[in-house]
Write a protein that binds this DNA or RNA. Sequence first.
DNA 1: AGCCAGGCGGTCA
DNA 2: TGACCGCATGGC
Length: 281
Amino acid sequence: MYNIPAPYFNLDYTLDCGQVFRWNLEDEWWHGVVKGEIVHAFHDRENETLILDSKLPKDYLHTYFRLDDDLPFIFSDIDKDPYIHEAISKYSGMRLILQEPWECLISYMLATASNIPRIKKSIERMSRLLGDDLGDGFYSFPKPKSLASCYNEELCECKMGFRARRIVQAAQMVVDKEFDLTAPYEMDYADAKQYLMTIEGIGDKVADCVLLFAYDKMEAFPVDTHVEKIVRQYYSDSFKGPYAKAKMSKWGHSYFGKYCGYAQQYLFYQLRLEGALGTGI
DNA sequence: AGCCAGGCGGTCA
DNA sequence: TGACCGCATGGC
């Protein structure tokens, strides 16, 4: 059991904001599986302490929850207008999470043209089927080898639809060492993005999510349909054509600066919770 | 019931 | 760097 000082932190927002899919809240404790281990987490707000029960090393979890990110500084840096100001004020304490690349990559490939409840279910089914049994109803995220060898067994199609083939293929690339999951750590944002997009099924948006959530490339600004709507309504409707989202992504970086990844996640979460646009400000 | 989902890749002009 | 389509299927 670890007690970690965690000022400027909100565990609920952090785990609920749609960046991770394997955490569930039950009786004020969050329960999840990270890097093949069960983690139980409780936020003692009075004492600004994060209480964690897990076999994982304390420093790993500290890094996972990005507790070294200087949130007040990041807020002051991205606080460019009333709309983002509202988001960072209301949901202050939401932190990005530094995920394992393999799980993040597959999860976001699976997320294409889907929705969060469905993504969670699909990952849960897949883990139950192909991951290790950790006890108490927890299962690890399937390893590349398990996913690579299951396409013809109909099992793997855990309601993944057209995504199944791409995911199995990506797993095969990792198994065959055609794709090196550690390589993007050493690359800059642009190179790492290009490298990720050599995988079929990874385009601009999925690549940006993986770069932001797993490879610590804070300058990534993922633009999905929600962020696209926000940008159009509150910032500029001048982005046209099939590459509109890619243009918005570049705009996001230049507008919000080096911590635009944080800005993106706050905007995304605000819209997801509050639904219809136009109720804010 | 019917639209849309944390998209991508391909095609046609 | 424009406009459209098919992909599979669940949420709401």
